[in-house]
Design a binder for these strands. Structure first.
Lengths: 140, 140
DNA sequence: TGAAAATTAGTTACCTAGGTAACTATATAT
DNA sequence: ATATATAGTTACCTAGGTAACTAATTTTCA
């Protein structure tokens, strides 16, 4: 168990890299994909909502969203609160979602197909517990 | 299980962030730490050895090693092969290792202490299987 | 055997993604 | 009316990647 976290990060890097390779045709990156995915599920969102969901800091979200906007995959939605930047997928964004979704679903399915359901369940719950625990850590 | 990989990456980000916070006093980052750790275990190493071990590309290793060298935590070791850059920890590097090691060990131990050994074992083996599988993926 | 070809180690330049600190503008609370 | 909180941005740090390169070593084979 010595190398638990080492191995954990190893898979994380490799997974992200492979996802990036799989959607490179679409000129998309994993983190961009995750926002596209979120928007498809939630219709509209503010940057703070996205930031909270992924637990990624706001400046990072701002930048990635800007890239999606430059590529016209997302667009602004009117909002009562003038501070807010509420966004949604464009037609083009939805199209990219469909294409990326197919590729990524297949990739992920194939990745776990030989692993017993029970083991995946336990792994999922264990990571969930680790996440819960680490989020209770007082910030330094 | 829908959110398996989403949650996986979430913990990865948060874990790295927390490690960074814990060793910020030492002016160290997680990825720098991992190389310091490797060098303490293996005495000397070339950049390719480090790159292979972490499955991180050579340019990334070059840069991180340069930063460690700038801070005089590592130094060059003579090598027969003139292409190689073989390195080891300096006295200062060993000192930083000792300090970081204590902090990180405690942090990691506390993170897993409430999780049953069996669950950790299964999680470890499952990630190992995922890693094995993903590394068999033909490159795109 | 010795020149040419292929491989290996490392670097440079440049891309995206994570972070923090400090800021502006708007909305909310006092 | 003022103070505080919230949403987002800008500037700048480290870390991951790829592509293309140099220099040194190893392999090939005429």
């Amino acid at each position: 168990m010595e190398a638990f976290f080492h191995q954990y990060l190893q898979f994380s890097r490799t997974f992200t890299k492979k996802i990036n390779e799989h959607i490179a045709d679409l000129d998309l990156y994993q983190s961009q994909w995750s926002i596209v995915y979120y928007l498809q599920k939630n219709k509209t969102a503010t940057l703070v909502e996205i930031s909270n969901y992924f637990q990624v800091e706001k400046p990072t979200i701002t930048r990635t969203v800007n890239r999606l906007e430059d590529r016209q995959l997302i667009e602004k939605v009117a909002s009562a609160d003038k501070r807010e930047r509420r966004i949604q997928l464009t037609e083009k964004g939805l199209d990219v979602y469909d294409q990326a979704s197919a590729v990524i679903d297949a990739f992920e399915k194939q990745l776990v197909e030989e692993i017993p359901k029970d083991d995946l369940e336990i792994t999922f719950r264990t990571i969930q517990r680790l996440l819960f625990k680490i989020n209770k850590e007082e910030s330094v």
